[in-house]
Design a protein around this nucleic acid. Structure first.
Lengths: 396, 396
DNA sequence: CTCCTTTGTCCTCTCAGTGGAGAAAGTTCG
DNA sequence: CGAACTTTCTCCACTGAGAGGACAAAGGAG
């Protein structure tokens, strides 16, 4: 289904669209306060945007002491698709042009089933959202995948945990299927974009987002822009050595952060502890569920289980150790912790904070907040919508 | 002594000045090939630059098959001062506007003597260069200091190795003394700027420069611009933990990279080895000089001394360990090794390379050159000149 | 000497954008 | 209720940056 493909004709229009996206419906006068254009020029550009259909009239605004102004807003019919493909599940959401989530579906799915199978699921999830009346079609889609991406082309490159995706033309294929522009990025970068747009990082130009899920990755934002590195693999911190001569890792080295702490590692450690009889609580959960996950450890810790708590602390120490190095190097204004294991909550956060504040120099940590992400499981899809919105709302 | 304070009036003029700086004398026609301006517009801007005196006529160019064109060049009378204050010595150089070094003085000097004493030396060195006929005055100066700097104000902040400099208004004070615009930055950032301008990093947008001198620091270039971090301490990698529970460091932690490898650490280790009788060669040098420096270790290694070689290898391993983490995180297109210990040369480089290529993922290291800096001791002063030149050649 | 290429200058035309003036629409206060 | 003040929006003349073409100047190739 083809949709309106209008794009802003110049930087002014792009700026106006972004203001309307981030600030909601607005009057010409208020827009004028923010853009340093003469009223006449502003009126011309707004009229042109109205002509394209990207922007529509939205009634009268409240008076600010004089004549009431006519509001404009982004066309409420516009629909963006945000897709966040994780290692073990997929999130698909529909948003309007203001990036408000109108519908959101999550479904477990192993990314290793390969691009064709995964996209079948994604497309059927998108169809389901469409069928429920949320959208007639999509004006753009952002896709997050759990591995490095050659960003300009939207193609995964040598992704360790998703064999079969290497070189698959994700952007082109989905653009064809959906009939709309598509942008592809690493899932961690999208999480960073999400937290920047609607979460804790709204006002910070330089920050890091550490996502601890099945694996561990890091989103890097420099001067308000996501930094992706030379080959698109920036932020790949899962295989930084956290423990010298530590556990063997799938990558062939020893002591990688991911081998010592991640959703997968934590589940494995907990299972081991349960089997060795170190924790009755964990053993019970193991027996009840036939397996243990990070969520079980979180629950056990919340119930006061010392072993679970120690596992979390130990993981926080390893993670904090690595983050401390990144903080010294990058000197961010904020560190956001997110991903599946945010369920571990403040126990984890406290362990990470302790380690970072102890190991980095005061100048770098002096005024450095280390916080949990605000958006939880929606960070990825909001970031995906933001990604494509930035693309659509930039000069053609 | 006051000099011409003309600045480009717009972005076009700034761009032209930068082209003339980086490409040397050039004809209007050739400039036109590079700037996407109409010939008429270009002529107007060049004429205005000629009026300001920043640019002067430079005779006729060779024919390109038709009428010969009139060359223009940056005013050869322009003089920039590059100052690189290290922990134990100071470099001062004079360049023309094309950043060619016309004169260069190095002088040992302990930065801990404090800003007043150091600037006395710097000013007298500048006066010496002036007296030798290289300059009548300076149109701008760039200053590098061995510690974090609040860049916009040009003020060192909480510099560990230079007590007494904290908050000293370096930029303002020197601007007053020299009567010209001054910019101040971390010495490692200037080294990065230098290698970017005239060294190995000319064509790479994202790269790291690791400077191993008395301490260890890292310059970060993102998208062609130096990244300085939130508080100006980005790249401060000397206190990243390289060896868990390793040697105590002045910062209060243990196992910091700087404690295990740096000019200072290497000299100390070598002295220790000599005293323990592990190396006859080093012992001889110790006796001859009354002390050992990194240069002695380099000489001993070159002469085949196994102990010296092992010290270098061990240091390279620690450094490589840390760099491997940075490479995974930052995914640079190039890593440059520089600083005082480049005398250790390829032994060090080989050890670093081995460690990095082993520990980082192939996607990040696949096409990653790790090389020694090209400019040696001039990188800092060239970078300093480049810094102030970028400032002068940007719209006012 | 002729023809072609390159360079530099001049002039006109276009168009984005500014900065009013003034009309339209509301509020406040006597 | 009306007068005075505010705010919003539209219209229009004016400015200035810049493009682009015509043409002159200067040189090379044959």
């Amino acid at each position: 289904m083809r949709r309106m493909t209008a794009r802003p004709a110049n930087a002014h229009q792009a700026r106006l669209l972004q203001l309307l996206r981030d600030g909601g419906p607005n009057s010409r006068a208020q827009l004028g306060d923010q853009v340093d254009l003469s009223r006449s020029k502003l009126a011309v550009e707004v009229d042109r945007l109205l002509e394209t259909g990207l922007v529509v009239a939205d009634g009268l605004a409240a008076s600010r002491g004089g004549r009431r102004s006519h509001n404009v807003r982004l066309n409420p019919e516009l629909r963006l698709l945000g897709v966040d493909i994780g290692a073990t599940s997929v999130d698909v959401a529909v948003t309007n042009a203001e990036l408000e989530i109108l519908g959101h579906i999550n479904q477990p799915l192993d990314v290793r089933e390969g691009p064709v199978a995964v996209f079948e699921h994604v497309l059927s999830m998108a169809a389901k959202l469409r069928a429920s009346g949320l959208a007639e079609g999509f004006d753009g889609a952002g896709i997050g995948v759990p591995g490095p991406v050659r960003f300009p082309e939207g193609v995964p490159v040598a992704p360790p945990i998703m064999p079969g995706w290497d070189g698959f033309p994700v952007r082109e294929a989905l653009s064809q299927e959906l009939g709309c522009p598509v942008m592809v990025d690493n899932d961690v970068n999208l999480m960073a974009l999400g937290e920047q747009h609607a979460g804790v990082a709204r006002t910070v130009p330089d920050f890091l987002v550490v996502k601890i899920g099945t694996g561990i990755g890091c989103g890097i934002v420099v001067g308000g822009d996501v930094y992706r590195g030379t080959t698109g693999s920036a932020g790949d911190i899962g295989h930084i050595q956290a423990v010298p001569d530590g556990r063997p890792c799938a990558c062939g080295n020893r002591g990688c952060l991911e081998a010592h702490f991640s959703g997968a590692a934590l589940a494995r450690d907990a299972t081991e502890a349960a089997q060795q009889g170190l924790s009755a609580d964990l053993a019970n959960r193991l027996e009840a569920n036939g397996g243990l996950s990070a969520a079980d450890v979180a629950a056990a810790a919340a119930a006061g289980d010392a072993t679970a708590l120690e596992l979390i602390r130990e993981g926080g120490r390893s993670t904090g150790q690595v983050i401390a190095g990144l903080v010294s190097f990058f000197n961010p204004g904020l560190v956001v912790i997110g991903g599946g294991v945010t369920g571990l909550g403040h126990n984890l956060l406290a362990a990470i904070r302790t380690q970072v504040y102890r190991q980095s120099l005061p100048l770098a940590t002096g005024n450095l907040p280390i916080v949990l992400g605000e958006l939880g499981p929606t960070a990825g899809v909001i970031g995906a919508a933001r990604l494509i919105s930035d693309h659509l709302f930039s000069p053609a």
